[in-house]
């Protein structure tokens, strides 16, 4: 076993997902603790290696059947990389793809595993803090000396720390053969047309504080800048300003986006029921006593129009 940290890059449609850089940043920090190198495992898409400047080394496996993610062949490829690099810690995203890789690797390579991690530390042993029980408890586990696998929550560390301009050494491992029991067929893009707000990462939700139908535009502009979809409280839908499928709450839908920005929503229990599962709730309301602030993680006692306009401008300038 080396003291290296192996970060498993995640990419799709020709670009890396943010989690890759988040883990690369965290992986470098961890490697500083172990005294090893921070190595990236890049399965398929070896042409993307140049974007991994922050890594100490990139190990690629490429070949037929690896262009698109495939749980079986990517697992096999990862196993081959792990075997050749023999890292102390393997970092995998706690993502759709990562879920297919982490547990399988842990069983096959007989490594300890901690899932849903916020942070990882290495000393004599590796410890990880997992966010579990719906975010109600953080569980710190000891994974022994290593080797081990940690699967990292998206957003647990900043992506910037994982970006750099270096030119890491690249190494290639041959793609192992598989049984071909899992076959990739195709990718299906979400249908254009009206949005399914339950499947969005960011929601800009408007309430009665928006005032009039025409003013919804203000929120829409912000949403566009944020790549977010518009959701609403019931009165907005009742007024016919937005279709019913945008309504969040008891008589609407339940949403669990990463970020929920509530503009001019008081926070009636019927509404809260539908959005309390959001990872981050940001509320903007002129009433400092609005109950929405009890569930929000961040609050601003401001006029929503002022905030929206300023924020939209700032974002446009970036």
């Amino acid at each position: 076993m080396s003291q290296d940290v192996l970060v498993v890059a995640e990419h799709g449609q020709g670009k890396f997902d943010d989690i890759t850089f988040e883990m690369l940043g965290a992986g470098k920090a961890l490697a500083a603790q172990t005294g090893g190198a921070c190595v990236v495992a890049l399965i398929g898409g070896s042409d993307l290696a140049s974007q991994l400047g922050a890594a100490d080394k990139v190990v690629t496996v490429d070949g037929e059947g690896l262009e698109n993610f495939n749980p079986e062949s990517h697992s096999a490829a990862l196993a081959a990389i792990v075997e050749s690099t023999s890292p102390r810690v393997v970092m995998i995203g706690y993502t759709s793809m990562g879920m297919d890789l982490a547990s399988a690797l842990s069983v096959k390579a007989d490594m300890a595993l901690a899932a849903s991690c916020l942070e990882v530390q290495a000393g004599d042993t590796v410890t990880a803090v997992s966010q579990l029980y719906g975010g109600k408890l953080n569980v710190k586990t000891d994974l022994g000396a290593g080797p081990c696998v940690v699967s990292m929550l998206a957003g647990s560390s900043p992506a910037d720390a994982g970006k750099g301009d270096g030119a890491p050494a690249t190494e290639t491992v041959a793609a192992p053969a598989t049984d071909g029991k899992v076959r990739f067929v195709r990718l299906i893009e979400p249908e254009a047309g009206d949005v399914d707000i339950t499947a969005q990462d960011i929601l800009v939700a408007i309430g009665r504080g928006i005032g009039t139908k025409d003013d919804i535009e203000v929120a829409e502009e912000l949403a566009e800048e944020l790549d977010a979809a518009i959701a609403a409280s019931r009165p907005i839908v009742d007024s016919g300003w937005l279709p019913k499928n945008r309504q969040v709450g008891k008589s609407g839908v339940k949403v669990t986006p990463k970020v929920y920005i509530a503009l001019g929503i008081s926070g009636a229990p019927e509404h809260i029921e539908g959005m309390k599962g959001a990872a981050t709730i940001i509320a903007i309301n002129t009433d400092k006593n609005a109950p929405i602030f009890n569930v929000a993680h961040y609050g601003m006692v401001e006029d929503l129009f002022d905030v929206c306009e300023e924020l939209t401008e700032e974002l446009q300038d970036r």
Binding site: L113, V139, K140, T141, I281, H297, Y298, G299, M300, L311
Partner: peptide
């Protein structure tokens, strides 16, 4: 192959953390 060291509720302040400016929001 793991052992639990400790379980703790995540640190959260009382209610929302209040932001004063759009910069903070960003």
């Amino acid at each position: 192959k793991f052992s639990i060291v400790v379980m703790t509720p995540p640190e959260t302040g009382e209610g929302a953390q209040m932001l004063e400016s759009v910069e903070e929001l960003i």
